[in-house]
Amino acid sequence: MIDTIPWILLPLGGFIALTAAIGVLRFPDFYSRLHPAGTGDTLAQLLVLLGLLPLVTAWEDGAKLVMVTVLLFVTTPTATHAISQAAHLEGLRPWTRKEESDG
């Protein structure tokens, strides 16, 4: 039973990461592209690391995987916030549906 968990979680994590890449390509502007990139940062890495947990034998390795998850959950939103604030300060205006119908 425990052997099947990685086989479910790892491909699922890969699928989410692929979705993040496709989302970055498909979405219209800088701000909206942050959102699918965020799915890659959060759910994809969570699924991959959870999927790896049953595979490790030493407890230190498991603890390291958990630490990587915690670190990424703290740092990625900070980085996302930093670049979006930089864009906002530069005066980049977000793409909206109204502008599309105007032009």
């Binding site: 701000y31 909206s32 942050l34 959102h35 699918p36 965020g38 799915t39 959060t42 759910l43 959950f73 703290v74 990625t76 939103p77 900070t78 996302t80 916030h81 979006s84 604030q85 864009a87 906002h88 977000p94």
Partner: peptide, 26 residues
């Protein structure tokens, strides 16, 4: 709060100011 907003896809905190945040929502 700001980090939780950014962490949930679909919303990103763009600016933190006194008393309010500016948030971009999908």
């Amino acid at each position: 709060y700001a980090n939780s907003i950014t962490l949930t896809p679909g919303t990103v905190t763009v600016r933190c100011e006194e008393g309010h945040f500016i948030v971009h929502a999908l």
